[in-house]
Design a binder for these strands. Structure first.
Length: 340
DNA sequence: GTTCCACAGGAAAATATGGAGG
DNA sequence: CCTCCATATTTTCCTGTGGAAC
């Protein structure tokens, strides 16, 4: 597309995976984690790190930032997102794969143990840092025990709440008792503004966005840098199309709901047909469990879909609550489900 | 007070799914 | 193609809960 007055200089800086060269506003956390991992460079054991805080507070970004530093010192690292990699087997497999092991996995015998042994063998000489993002999504916490007992392996566990490990197996907790707990609180509005400023500086043409506009975005993002950046991205893309050479207040005001909506749609996309039906029924207004199941079955009839059993419906609803798509308030039959 | 209802959510059995090897 | 592995998902069976009905 030909643009006479482009606004975007470099769209990479607005993507989720972008890690800036310089991380501001997280000095304390960076220092802590750096100190925890520093011994590894000298071939000494590192200290495990437990990182927690709400979404969009730079947990993942900071962790990757620091492990990249270590990489330059010759310490390899592996990033695992437990949202996609939930089982013990998969986590081990991913780690080995990313460490460059050739895996011709014969899924015979106790493959999981074999993987564990392979990993131990591999790390006899060399150190590695393993990041487990969204650990609360792990379905089998045993993997934590596995990893924490491997010599030369240091973990960075990333989660939304401080309490995810509190009801873990005591053996795991005691192993992690010495871990460094690093909190990532919500950003202040001014912090977000600074972050946006940096991104605008490297991603946008100079002078296309006003300071006051960045402030507007920062205020509306309620401390979530991911939302803030995606608002700036969407507004910039609109401005690019408009060919006026700058971002207007309207672009920003329109981008806000779009950013939040996009975040939601992304999650809804990952739902299966039954979950989508449930979501749509709940979207029609708050509803109680019994009515919900009846309406759900009617919808299935209409689509000649075989309805799933009520226990599975409850599992699906539980999942959707976790994803923050719906809310469940109250207990037992007085529970009502509403859209989040 | 006892029983019943309508649901939540745990445990485990049952079933589906997928990859490797034949 | 099928079978033998594994994991993943769904269903069955169950216990617990708290208000309502008796």
């Amino acid at each position: 597309m030909y643009e006479e007055k482009p606004v975007i200089k470099n769209s990479d800086v607005f993507t989720d995976v972008f890690i800036p060269d310089q991380l501001n506003h997280r000095d304390g956390q960076i220092k802590s984690i750096r100190d925890d991992l520093k011994p590894i460079i000298k071939k000494q054991p590192g200290r495990h790190v437990f990182v927690y805080g709400p979404p969009g507070t730079g947990k993942t970004c900071t962790s990757i930032y620091i492990t990249r530093e270590l990489k330059r010192e010759g310490v390899p690292n592996v990033y695992v997102n437990c949202w996609e990699t939930q089982s013990r087997f998969k986590v081990l497999y991913t780690i080995l794969e990313k460490l460059g092991s050739k895996l011709s996995i014969h899924t015979k015998g106790t493959a999981t143990h074999e993987l564990l042994d392979m990993l131990k063998q591999k790390l006899k000489e060399n150190q590695v840092v393993v990041m487990l993002d969204e650990v609360d999504q792990l379905e089998d916490e045993k993997i934590l025990y596995d990893l924490v007992t491997i010599a030369n392996l240091t973990v960075i566990l990333i989660a939304n709440t401080e309490t995810v490990l509190s009801d873990a197996d005591p053996r795991i907790r005691s192993r992690l008792a010495s871990a460094d707990n690093v909190e990532f609180p919500k950003y202040k509005s001014e912090d977000i503004k600074e972050i946006l400023k940096d991104r605008a500086h490297s991603g946008l043409v100079a002078g296309v966005v006003k300071q006051s506009q960045l402030e507007t975005i920062a205020d509306a993002s309620s401390g979530d840098s991911r939302i803030a950046i995606s608002v700036l991205r969407i507004a910039s893309e609109e401005a690019d199309k408009s060919d006026t050479g700058k971002i207007s207040d309207d672009h920003i005001n329109n981008a806000l709901p779009t950013a939040k909506q996009q975040k939601k749609e992304k999650t809804i996309d990952s739902l299966n047909d039954h979950q989508k039906i449930l979501y749509r029924v709940i979207r029609n207004g708050e509803i109680q469990p019994g009515d919900l199941y009846i309406k759900y079955k009617q919808e299935c009839d209409r689509k000649s879909l075989e309805p799933i059993k009520d226990r599975t419906v409850r599992k699906y609803l539980e999942k959707m609550v976790q994803y923050n798509l719906i809310l469940a308030k109250g207990e037992t039959k007085w529970r009502v489900y509403t859209i989040a």
